[in-house]
Design a protein around this nucleic acid. Structure first.
Length: 577
DNA sequence: GCCGTTTTCGGCCCGACTGTTTTCAGTCG
């Protein structure tokens, strides 16, 4: 039995990391099914809001077993982890191959088998050693490796490094909220807020910036230092505390007087270039703006500057000041504006839950309709469906729609082949309520080929939406390169909708391209890309990205009721003369 | 290692693509 006081601290994110490491380790062992089991468990843990430590304390191992993907085996491992700081099976496998697996497999194109070979033949443990070996041309001696593999790996490392130290917003936000709650609960604390890129809902954040109004700041700092989430103290003064979080990023906390809350919040929210422009504007008006200027609210600050209030997501110096001056800023889409979700998956392919369960979860998330967009046959890895299977799925959806509280739409995520052709026959596409298509391979075609490929999809009369258009994976795979001006022009011309995929590791389209697409007159959709009921929570991040791209509700088709949304789709429009 | 209104044991893992290969291993969502 473990008692709470003796329990080691592990956040859900950290547990998920360890489970993913177990997946890789058992993959190296040549296990066929265990890796998938560990991966599923990791996904499940990552998506959970309640800390596992709490589940374990209140409900014991049985409570852990209730989590989908966690059974007796993993529950026992986790109980051991929380009690002792590690578990025997993990230690046993790690001793065999003592390398930084998560760091290595994060490089695109490197998987567990490669990691194993790298360790056994070259004793490569981490990214630095891998880079050195690749530069020295040592990798090409390994079986199955050549000069091109080295090149590819070096490219992967470079991309990985350029992203290092930044967390995707979905990983940072829950921890920030938790820390905020804990600090807010201190009796001497009057106010606490997270500022910085997190408040601007940037796709990745490099650190957390907190502002706090406290009667006894040093006392507050002391208590923060004692948080289990804090790994090390970098600096601790009277007004500023800087710590390294277990999360892998730093956190700065600044104690400020309540009277300058607005100015400080504004200053520490950024962006830097936005702030510089505000300060220059103040100087022009004959006064000086800094974080200590006496503005209790941001609203008062913007008003004094002669600007309409500018939402944090818009503060990236892309014209917001000029428009704030003229009062022509867009009203960004509200966080509760979506009436439906247009991309989700079920057990028919790689989703974790049935259509019925996904529909129920979408309803619980406040949606009125949901599109089921399971994969097509070309993506065999996901169990992609053929034409006949779509017919069968349609029957199930018809039956569910008779009793479902929300409208379930028949759709598909059709795979786009190298040349822009699709892997599902037109007559199958015609039977759907709408169809989306997306790129899952051939990421590095030339700009010309990639552009032509996407335009060809736009020109298909039965593809209504292009899902995750750039195919990027945050911190892992760069966007495909295409002439987006040309692609958006074709989308506008053909009435093809571009998606903002809200999946936390995608956020695709991203802010800049969203703005460009809107400028080109293209309509957008926001899709959760949910593979489980938890997946709908991601919609929030898609909306944030839309706001950062200056999208208003009118630009996003699924802010409309289902009939109205469907009328906007290419397939339901009368052909223009 | 998980899961079960077809199963508490035997299913799960489907195939395209890449880079290296003369027949295949590894990655990917």
């Amino acid at each position: 039995m473990c008692h709470n006081s003796e329990m080691k601290h592990f956040s859900n994110a950290r547990v998920a990391e360890i489970l993913n490491e177990m997946a890789a380790l058992s993959e190296m062992e040549g296990e066929a099914f265990k890796p998938r089991a560990y991966e599923r468990a990791a996904l499940s843990v990552e998506a959970r809001t309640e800390p596992l430590a709490e589940t374990l304390t209140t409900k014991g191992e049985k409570g852990l077993e209730e989590i989908p993907g966690i059974g007796k085996g993993i529950a026992a491992h986790l109980a051991e982890l929380f009690a002792t700081g590690d578990f025997a099976e993990h230690q046993r496998l790690r001793t065999k191959i003592p390398v930084n697996i998560n760091e290595l497999v994060a490089v695109e194109g490197i998987g567990p088998k490669t990691v194993k070979a790298l360790w056994e033949k070259l004793k490569i443990k981490d990214l630095d050693a891998l880079e050195k070996a690749a530069r020295a041309g040592k990798l090409r001696d390994l079986p199955g490796f050549g000069a091109r593999s080295e090149e590819k790996i070096l490219k992967g490392i470079a991309f990985r490094r350029s992203a290092a130290g930044r967390l995707i917003i979905a990983a940072a936000l829950p921890v920030a909220r938790l820390l905020q709650q804990k600090i807010a609960a201190f009796p001497e604390v009057e106010k606490v807020e997270a500022a910085g890129s997190l408040r601007r809902m940037k796709e990745t954040v490099g650190d957390l910036d907190f502002l706090v109004v406290s009667r006894t700041p040093t006392k507050t700092f002391k208590k923060i230092i004692a948080f289990p989430e804090v790994n090390a103290v970098l600096a601790a003064g009277d007004t500023k505390l800087s710590v390294r979080l277990e999360l892998g990023i730093d956190m700065d906390i600044r104690a400020i007087p309540a009277a300058s809350w607005g100015a400080a919040l504004n200053y520490f929210t950024g962006s830097k270039t936005h702030n510089i422009a505000l300060r220059a504007r103040a100087l022009k008006q004959g006064w000086s703006l800094n974080e200590y200027t006496l503005f209790p609210t941001e609203e008062a600050l913007y008003k004094k500057l002669g600007l309409t209030y500018i939402e944090p997501e818009l503060r990236e110096m892309t014209g917001e000041i000029e428009m704030g001056e003229k009062g022509t800023l867009p009203s960004p889409i509200a966080y509760d504006a979506l009436k439906g979700d247009l991309q989700s998956h079920s057990t028919w392919t790689d989703g974790a839950r049935s259509i019925e369960e996904m529909a129920k979860a979408a309803h619980a998330a406040g949606l009125a309709y949901i599109g089921i967009t399971d994969h097509t046959k070309g993506l065999a890895m996901t169990g992609g469906m053929n034409e006949q299977e779509f017919v069968e799925q349609a029957k199930e959806i018809d039956i569910l729609n008779k009793k479902s509280k929300i409208k379930i739409l028949k759709s598909a995520e059709v795979n786009i082949k190298k040349d822009g052709a699709l892997d599902l026959a037109d007559d199958a596409l015609a039977k759907l309520d709408y169809a989306g298509a997306s790129v899952h391979s051939h990421f590095d075609l030339s700009v010309k080929e990639q552009t032509r490929r996407l335009i060809r999809v736009c020109e298909h009369p039965l593809i209504d939406i292009i899902f995750h258009p750039t195919a990027r994976i945050l911190n892992k795979r760069p966007s495909i390169t295409a002439d987006w001006g040309e692609v958006f022009a074709a989308a506008k011309e053909t009435g093809t909708v571009m998606e903002i995929d809200a999946a936390v590791e995608r956020l695709d389209l991203h802010d800049e391209l969203i703005k460009q697409a809107i400028g080109a007159g293209v309509l957008l959709s926001i899709g959760s890309d949910a593979h489980s009921p938890d997946g709908f929570a991601a919609l929030r991040f898609g909306i944030a990205q839309a706001r950062r791209g200056w999208a208003e509700a009118k630009h996003i088709i699924n802010t409309r009721r289902v009939e109205e949304m469907l009328r906007l789709l290419k397939r339901n429009k009368k052909s223009t003369p």
